[in-house]
Design a protein around this nucleic acid. Sequence first.
DNA 1: CGACACATGTAACACGTTACATGATTTG
DNA 2: CAAATCATGTAACGTGTTACATGTGTCG
Lengths: 186, 186
Amino acid sequence: MLKFVLLSLLAQQPRHGYELKVVYDKIMCGLWPLVNIGQIYATLSRLERDGLVKDRQVAQDSRPDKRVYELTESGREALRVWFAQTSDGTQIKNELIVKLVFAQLTGLADVRALLAKQRRQYLQALRALDELAAQPSTGDSSDDGNAAGNPVMGLLIAGAALHLQADLKWIELCEEQLPQLNDTGR
Amino acid sequence: MLKFVLLSLLAQQPRHGYELKVVYDKIMCGLWPLVNIGQIYATLSRLERDGLVKDRQVAQDSRPDKRVYELTESGREALRVWFAQTSDGTQIKNELIVKLVFAQLTGLADVRALLAKQRRQYLQALRALDELAAQPSTGDSSDDGNAAGNPVMGLLIAGAALHLQADLKWIELCEEQLPQLNDTGR
DNA sequence: CGACACATGTAACACGTTACATGATTTG
DNA sequence: CAAATCATGTAACGTGTTACATGTGTCG
């Protein structure tokens, strides 16, 4: 994932590691945060090894040198391929669902309490998203060059909200069916 | 993930690697399939190394030996801890959303075509889920011992369907907002 | 002086994916 | 006899997580 995110950012313009981190944070609005910036350098090394990016040393007065990366033609092609791949949507990769199913199966957890706790967290997350959406554009609009972050922010937030709502609906469904599950399952 | 799934299955009763695979497939109804059974053995080794399971050699006449694993007290505790952890729901870990956002940002892909293609795939996946739900219980009910798979199948399928529907709604949202994005973004 | 922004990395580890290797028994 | 099922693994690799290491410049 990060691999393609970095390729995308480099497709806009050549950038160095630190700059990639800053732009990434701005675009993602804190949703899916980068835990560690070291990951960017590690990913860039792999990309360079595979010939998808190439770098250039840039000296700066009164600052450490920067290593500016740019996309190669292979890199651009790899991005196009990624964009063209769609998911078949077959797999559930949802931890909540798996966890609940097995919690119920083993009987080692109080499923009803779990559901209640998770609902509270999701509702809180939804409220946080609303606040994020209500903000003008993370402060002022006198940014450096790139006009990113703004236009897609609404879509990112909406996507996150839709998934939270889906999980909330699923939680309700579970609560309705819990009594029957306990009868049939054991 | 798989780590906790295996612990859960071992919480029901002691099992060997191959049996874990069979039961897993049955419970997950093909959603989130195990690509390779080797992964189970690798995960079991790590669990044993960490003292969460212990194994016992079982000789069989007219079959190769089995290695039967069972949960230790630490393993049971680790499971309880996992069950008790709820997600704060803050992060978007959705590849479709990220992909679309960056496809739009770079202008390297035909976003409208991408959205259309993805919707077709999701609708097809939804139909496949309906078929799965319509099946009695994957054939006959004269199974070996465990009465699993059946009771939670409905919830698994519902969860998958809810997420597909959320993504479909998001796709529609994107299609509505695409014209404005192109204006503002460039 | 201390905190913070700028700037770049390495090392160890967890986990999933992919491919490969091995061998017995049962069933058509 | 060939194929499927039963049964267990190893090795290499990609990617993400966590922690650590290092240094400069600016601002209060």
